[in-house]
Structure formats: structure tokens, C-alpha cells
Amino acid sequence: MSSLQAKHLLGIADLPKSDIDLIFETADNFKEVINRPIKKVPSLRDVTIANLFFENSTRTRLSFELAEKRLSADVVNFSASSSSVSKGETLVDTVNNILAMKVDMVVMRHPKPGAAAYLSKHIDATIVNAGDGAHEHPTQALLDAYSIREKFGEVAGKKIVIVGDILHSRVALSNIHCLKKLGAEVKVCGPITLMPRFIESLGVEVETDLRAALEWCDIANMLRIQLERQEQKFFPSLREYTMQYGLTMPILNGLSKEITIMHPGPINRGVEITSEVADSDHSIILNQVENGVAIRMAVLYLLAGTA
């Protein structure tokens, strides 16, 4: 019987396409489970999972915790603000101390790129990357692609534009890897100062004109401007960014076809997207959130079953 080739979920870059397909198939089953009157299954009742969040998160953390609880896993939570990290403990020490309490899996978000991969080499537990700096956010990319598959039947051949702060976005990088593996065409759109150098080497095209990008695509994934990661000014003002790259209803209505709007959250309403667009029929933002729980259940179930 097929199982995951990956032992950890560190990023999409190293994840084989067969693993992505298996995660999607399994997520279909969990999507049915979370729509039952009783949304809980006992699969992971002998598994303990530590959620280590060294960086703020609401949606991802709740989504993981819900997925873990719906699988009947025991869950311990940890956030950097209330921990010994501020007392000078190293990452490996912190995690080893938690593992000494017999934890099987670690879901970790960390501000440093590569933190999850580093951890997977130094400790004996299954690691799920819930975001490492500006590097990868694999479960977000999986749930985004899954939501596209749900709406359109398949991802292959679809045209997706990712708009916004590509330079600081782990969502953008993971999405590009995932969508390309599944056979989609991808463009990135935003101010040239927010484009990583050599981004074309990932097989994506750069478009600086929002209208042209939207006219080309089937789906637009609008990203937030990550001011907390910007140590210098990349554009004159947020207002100017919104004038150039903010998605509004008049722009959508001016297109020659209907497109689907996605957003990984948190939304800055009135900056990258207006409320009108976010709450419109074009948007599948809340479907993404629901699918997030199913995708994370699938990932945890498959990794636990493979270990």
C-alpha cells in the first residue's frame, strides 16, 4: 500500500508529487469526517504532538490544534513569548526537553529559515514545518492547491498569479513549488523591489502590472505586505502600494472574465484587497480555512502512519 516517501514535512521543494497526491486523496476523506455531526476519529490516540510556535500565529496554530484534536492526539502547546527561550535556551535544548516528555511529533513555526530542517537532523521525532521565516510554509501551499483542485477539479493547466510581497513570503515560495509540481502556470506580481532576484529560475514569470496579471490568470492569490519582516523601505508608502496593487471591485469588474480570489490570511482589508472583494462570490478565502483543517489532518495522519 502506498505511503508517504517523506518522513517529515519540511517544505514543498523536497516533497515528491506522489506525496502531494496522496495528501490530497486523504484530505478528501478527512473533509467528509469534519462535516459529520461528531467530527472526531481515534486514529492518533496514542500520539502526542507538541505545537512549538516561536513566532506569532492565530490561524495556522488553531488549524493545527483542531486537526490534532480531531484525530484524538494529545496536544501540548508552547509559545516563545511565555517560555525559557527568552532566558537564553537554544532551540535543540528546548525541543529535547519537550521530547523527554515523550512527544512523538513536533509542529513548529520559527522566525529563522531552515529551523525545521535543522531540527529534523538533531532530534528523534517527526517534524512538521508550520512556517520557517521567509522560507517555506508547506501546509499553506497544500491547502491552497487543494482549494484550487476542489473548485476547478484539477490544478494542472490552471493559471495562478501570486500578488504582493513575494520577497518576504514563505507562502509564495511554497505555493510556487507546489503549483509547479502539480502542473500549473504561475506568475508573480508586485513592486519590483519586492521580487527576489533570480525568481525566474523557479519557472515563474514576473509581471509588475496588476491588471495585466489579473487578465492573464484564472486565480489570484493576494498576499499581505509583511511589514514586520521589512527592515528597510521597499516602497514609498502603503497608500501608494494600495493604489498600484490593491485589488478592488472596479478592477475585478473591468476584467474580461471571472477570476477566483484567494488569500492566505491575515487580511489587511483595504490594503492588498478591499472588503468588498474579500467577501464577494469570487473569494474562496473561507473555503481555504476549512480545507486547512482537512489538509493538516491528512498530513499528520500520513506522517504518523509512516513513522
Binding site: 500500500m1 502506498s2 505511503s3 478528501d28 476523506n29 469526517v33 455531526p37 502512519g305 509512516t306 513513522a307
Partner: peptide, 27 residues
Amino acid sequence: LDITFFRDDFRRREGLLKPSQTQMNFL
């Protein structure tokens, strides 16, 4: 009804337990 997620041998045998589709349109 698919029972995969309720089986008692998950993680206790070689290979993954692969689920099938559940179709229950009633309570």
C-alpha cells in the same frame, strides 16, 4: 461507511492504512 480511521491496528503494522470513501447522507 469507511472504518479506516477507527481501526485498532494503525501504527501497529507495516504500511499505511488507506481510507475509502464514506457516503452517509443520513443520521
